[in-house]
Amino acid sequence: MPRYDFRCRACGSTFEVSRPMSSSNDPATCPDGHDDTVRLLSTVAMTGGAATPRQSSGGGCCGGGCCAT
């Protein structure tokens, strides 16, 4: 289930709420009970890269060795 970050405008605390995507825009109450909250824009950082696919030097069941003609 996705987590959404909220900030309370009354006390300044930041908190997370887990809820379905269909409820992402529903209001949230801060842990101190204040209703004046705003959902924050979450950012996702991804590092690294995809591995380069290995190139096959032959075909067949075992790299071409047993199926060569």
Rank of each mutant, 00 (worst) to 15 (best):
G58F: 01
C30N: 05
M21R: 13
P31H: 04
T47P: 00
T43V: 13
S57D: 15
E16F: 01
T29M: 12
G48P: 02
T14N: 13
C11L: 08
D32Q: 11
V44N: 04
A10F: 08
V44E: 04
C62D: 15
T14Q: 14
S56H: 05
G12Q: 02
L40R: 14
G58E: 07
G33N: 03
Y4S: 08
C11W: 07
F15S: 01
C30I: 11
R7W: 03
S22D: 14
T37L: 01
D35N: 10
D35I: 11
T29N: 02
L40E: 15
C66P: 00
S13G: 05
N25D: 15
R3M: 06
V17Y: 05
G60Y: 00
S13F: 04
S57N: 14
C62W: 10
G59F: 11
A28Q: 13
Y4L: 05
G33L: 03
G33R: 00
T69I: 08
D32I: 02
D32R: 12
H34F: 02
G58Y: 02
M1T: 12
G12H: 06
A51E: 13
R54E: 11
A51Q: 14
T14D: 13
G48E: 02
E16I: 00
M21C: 03
G64M: 07
V44K: 11
P53S: 09
C61Y: 14
F6N: 03
E16S: 15
V38W: 01
A28F: 06
M1V: 14
L40N: 11
G48C: 03
A68G: 06
D36Y: 02
C67Y: 09
P31V: 09
C11Q: 07
F6Y: 15
M46C: 09
G58N: 04
C67A: 10
G48W: 06
G63D: 01
S23F: 09
S42C: 04
R9G: 05
S22C: 06
D35E: 13
P20G: 13
A68S: 12
G65V: 11
P53N: 06
D35G: 14
F6H: 01
G63L: 10
T29P: 05
L41N: 09
D26H: 12
G49S: 14
C62K: 09
G64A: 11
C8L: 07
N25T: 11
V38R: 14
A45T: 14
N25I: 04
F6V: 02
N25A: 14
G63W: 06
S22Y: 02
S18Y: 00
F15L: 05
T37N: 01
L41M: 09
P2N: 09
S42F: 04
S18N: 06
G65R: 12
S13Q: 10
C11Y: 07
A45Y: 10
T14E: 15
T52S: 09
S22A: 15
A51M: 10
S23I: 03
G49I: 05
R9V: 03
A10S: 15
T69G: 10
G64I: 00
N25P: 01
S42A: 15
G48Q: 04
M1R: 06
V17R: 03
G60L: 02
S57A: 12
C67W: 04
S24I: 07
Q55F: 03
G64K: 06
G60S: 05
G60E: 02
C67S: 15
A51H: 06
G58H: 00
D32S: 12
A51V: 14
R39N: 04
S57R: 10
